[in-house]
């Protein structure tokens, strides 16, 4: 069983760098208005999430939808336990795996095999256990002799293959993904797609933030629409997508550049 419960959760970022004046210019455009506040010490705070109360249960495949800056990534990071909320509470049960950037922890000087072990370490998997999976990973990447060469000699596509395969070799209870992971050439993409499907299928909860509506429709059974750090809709994927598209018609200036 896995679950994540959020209660009245808020996240505020203090911004320390840069002069206030230029920050104001940079940050004040409409999409962020209402999210900026100054505290007693005159620092600028961005309220990335405000008053989020939501329950993620077994079997939930959640699509996180919203414009840039709506708080999708921040919410994912809170769910992953990376950001500790400034207010409210989060309570989670289950092994969380976050696939935000595929290449996290990749050391370009180390060989492919070493990087597989290394990636496992950052996923809290003991090198011993990772070694038992290394052959499966090696076979899936189809990198052959390259696995014993330093990753810096790899092409971009090759290193994505390696990172993707290593980070998807252990099915988690709770799977968090930011955007879709594009991995290598068309043939590998197909393989990766299938592997991803298996992984999602064996996880209890999946949360996917993406702007690709077909993808969200394919994978998800629940949609959460975020706007300025608040949940404005929590329903089926189709409802959430419809609401997202409606709101982009009302405020076209805020919509995504395709």
């Amino acid at each position: 069983m896995a679950f994540i419960r959020l209660r009245n959760l808020s996240v505020e970022f203090p911004i320390y760098q840069g002069s206030h004046r230029s920050l104001k210019k940079l940050l004040l455009p409409a999409s962020l208005q209402g999210n900026l506040a100054r505290d007693r010490m005159d620092r600028i705070n961005v309220r990335a999430l405000s008053d989020i109360t939501v329950d993620l249960r077994d079997g939930d495949r959640i699509a996180l939808i919203g414009y840039n800056g709506a708080g999708k990534t921040t919410l994912l990071k809170v769910l992953a336990g990376i950001f500790i909320p400034t207010r409210g509470q989060i309570y989670a049960h289950g092994k969380v795996s976050s696939l935000f950037a595929v290449n996290v922890g990749v050391n370009p000087e180390a060989t492919g095999r070493e990087n597989i072990i290394l990636r496992g370490m950052y996923m809290d998997v003991h090198p011993r256990e990772m070694r038992t999976r290394i052959d499966e990973v090696a076979a899936f990447t189809e990198l052959g002799p390259y696995l014993d060469m330093p990753v810096r000699t790899y092409s971009a596509g090759m290193s994505v293959r390696l990172a993707f395969t290593a980070s998807t070799c252990i099915p988690p209870d709770i799977l968090l993904m930011d955007e879709w992971i594009s991995a290598g050439d068309a043939r590998f993409l197909e393989k990766a797609h299938k592997r991803m499907a298996d992984m999602i299928g064996s996880s209890n909860i999946m949360v996917l933030a993406s702007h690709s509506m077909p993808l969200l429709r394919e994978w998800c059974n629940r949609g959460i629409l975020l706007q300025q750090g608040r949940i404005v809709l929590d329903g089926t994927v189709d409802e959430a997508i419809a609401a997202y598209q409606r709101s982009s018609e009302v405020e076209p200036a805020l919509s995504e550049p395709a």
Partner: peptide, 15 residues
């Protein structure tokens, strides 16, 4: 694999 987190930074900033 079990964590509960609270908003801890808050008390310091609010008089």
């Amino acid at each position: 694999c079990f964590f509960a987190i609270c908003g801890a930074g808050e008390r310091s900033r609010l008089g």
